[in-house]
């Protein structure tokens, strides 16, 4: 293990890490939004919408993520939709993560009992107040552990995007190995970086879960 070499490569790795984090952050943000929206649509009672969302979720979960990336990056341009490598990556990662977030939030919504509706109706809350102030906090709380898992998986799956040439952490490492043949040093350092990212995010998730698992109200 040549630590001097790792130090020398560190600036490059950090640029890669920056791209990894930006892509992941965008995908996490968008997939949570789409996940919530999809979960609401899936439980909306409108049959065609429900079928469409279910079909989307099943299709994404039933096909390899790598093929989805290739389809988006190489396939869509011939259908008239051309995106840069960066945005193809964001779209692919978001499309993948959304399917899982829809499932997570759907389970969260299902965990909120029917009694809550009756309770808030009896308190005179309007329908939107009920949705925003009662259902949303409770559903988020129930969905959080599995949503955190998907968020961690989103960061990890950003590594797949090196296959289309997005210059993120894994790409930088493999690229340097092609020149310097220092495979052990490079892989050791990116493994440590990925592990640190994963531990940080799951740690944050744990803190948020602890805060949210206190009973609401009572001030």
């Amino acid at each position: 293990m040549d630590f001097a070499y790792i130090l020398e490569a560190l600036p490059d790795l950090m640029t890669g890490l920056k791209t990894t984090l930006i892509v992941s952050f965008l995908a996490i943000f968008l997939s949570c939004l789409i996940g919530l929206l999809g979960a609401v649509l899936r439980t909306s009672g409108v049959k065609p919408l429900q079928y469409a969302v279910t079909a989307y979720v099943e299709f994404i979960r039933g096909t390899p993520y790598l093929v989805q990336i290739f389809f988006i990056f190489y396939g869509l341009p011939s259908l008239g939709m051309r995106f840069s490598i960066f945005w193809s990556g964001v779209i692919a990662l978001t499309a993948w993560a959304s399917a899982f977030q829809i499932e997570n939030f759907r389970a969260g919504l299902a965990a909120v009992g029917r009694g809550m509706y009756d309770a808030s109706a009896s308190l005179g809350l309007k329908r939107w107040q009920h949705s925003v102030f009662v259902i949303l906090p409770l559903a988020t709380r129930a969905a959080l552990p599995s949503a955190m898992n998907t968020i961690v998986a989103t960061v990890k799956n950003s590594a797949y995007l090196q296959a289309i040439g997005l210059v993120e952490l894994t790409f930088v490492a493999v690229d340097r190995i092609a020149y310097d043949f220092r495979a052990i040093e490079m892989f050791a350092s990116i493994c440590v970086i990925y592990l640190l990212c994963v531990f940080t995010i799951s740690g944050l998730g744990y803190v948020v879960e602890r805060r949210l698992s206190r009973p609401f109200g009572g001030r």
Binding site: S158, A159, Y160, T170, Y194, V198
Partner: peptide, 11 residues
């Protein structure tokens, strides 16, 4: 479980 599968495969 925590290292991306893509990295494991390449590693």
């Amino acid at each position: 479980r925590d290292i991306p599968l893509m990295v494991t495969v390449l590693m």
